[in-house]
């Protein structure tokens, strides 16, 4: 799955195939779904004022907006479920274990990302082949909000549907004291995605700009370009990236 190394140049960069097609497909379908869900969701929350002289029976645009929200919701859910599945069968960078900072090495990496990239109190270069540990953690938090959005959404949807799937989530309603609470929190969680996207897109550009490893285009083509020296440990094993490498890292004791 690794790209063949480019010829040994001065900096010695290697093309690494990180994001397999299913991950990239998931990413862009997911981003599209979120865009559609946010826009239609806000229209549902506060529909624009329209003054027409026509009878209600001639138009159905608000119903259509809601319909688009619900159809997209289904696409979103299946796409999300697919990504979880891919966390079990995909490559080491897509592996589900990366998303939980359960290993010491992952936790340490979270701390150094904070130091190097966010607070910038350190300039030590930091290399991640997959996402960095903080990014994985952030995506994990976002997956939890996905779950909430799905559960609250389908709980609200259950009263408009006879299908069995939405009714799996009706237990949410009493937890939030009724439908009004669900609407409120579903609406509020939407802001989480907006804030996430602002920061996410900024940071992707930031990494691409500062590091020049092609992070930004990695979600399009799948490749990153990383210094070969940083990819292999002296014994030739893959040094960075993914749960397996981190396992080796753990055994080797503190590296950083």
């Amino acid at each position: 799955m690794h790209a063949t190394a480019s010829s040994a140049g001065a900096p010695g960069f290697q093309r690494v195939y990180v994001w397999e097609l299913p991950v990239r497909f998931y990413h862009w379908l997911n981003a599209l779904c979120i865009l559609v869900l946010t826009v239609t969701g806000f229209i549902i929350a506060n529909p624009p004022a329209i003054n027409t002289a026509s009878e209600a029976s001639f138009s159905y645009w608000f119903g259509t907006t809601r319909f688009i929200h619900f159809v997209t919701a289904y696409v979103f859910v299946f796409n999300f479920a697919f990504r979880i599945y891919w966390g079990f069968v995909g490559n080491q960078y897509a592996d589900w274990k990366n998303f939980l900072p359960l290993r010491l090495a992952q936790f340490r990496e979270v701390m150094s990302v904070l130091k190097v990239d966010i607070l910038q109190s350190s300039n030590r270069p930091l290399l991640a082949v997959g996402h960095n540990a903080l990014a994985y953690l952030t995506y994990f938090v976002m997956f939890l909000v996905f779950l909430f959005q799905v559960a609250s959404g389908f709980a609200m949807y259950a009263n408009m549907s006879d299908a069995w799937f939405p009714h799996l989530f009706t237990w949410m309603t009493p937890l939030f004291g009724g439908d009004a609470g669900l609407h409120f929190w579903h609406h509020l969680a939407t802001w989480f995605f907006i804030l996430f996207t602002l920061i996410h897109v900024y940071l992707v550009f930031y990494h691409d700009y500062v590091e020049g490893h092609g992070v930004l285009s990695s979600m399009a083509g799948g490749w990153k370009f990383l210094p070969s020296s940083a990819l292999k440990s002296p014994d030739g094993k893959s040094w960075f990236g993914g749960a397996k490498a981190r396992e080796a890292d753990d055994k080797a004791g503190p590296v950083i």
Partner: peptide
């Protein structure tokens, strides 16, 4: 919720801009 969200959004953009300068 929208006022809170908008406020946080503005703060995020300001934070990102400041971070970009710092970078």
């Amino acid at each position: 919720a929208d006022k809170v969200g908008l406020g946080l959004g503005a703060a995020t953009i300001a934070g990102a801009a400041a971070h970009a300068v710092l970078t």
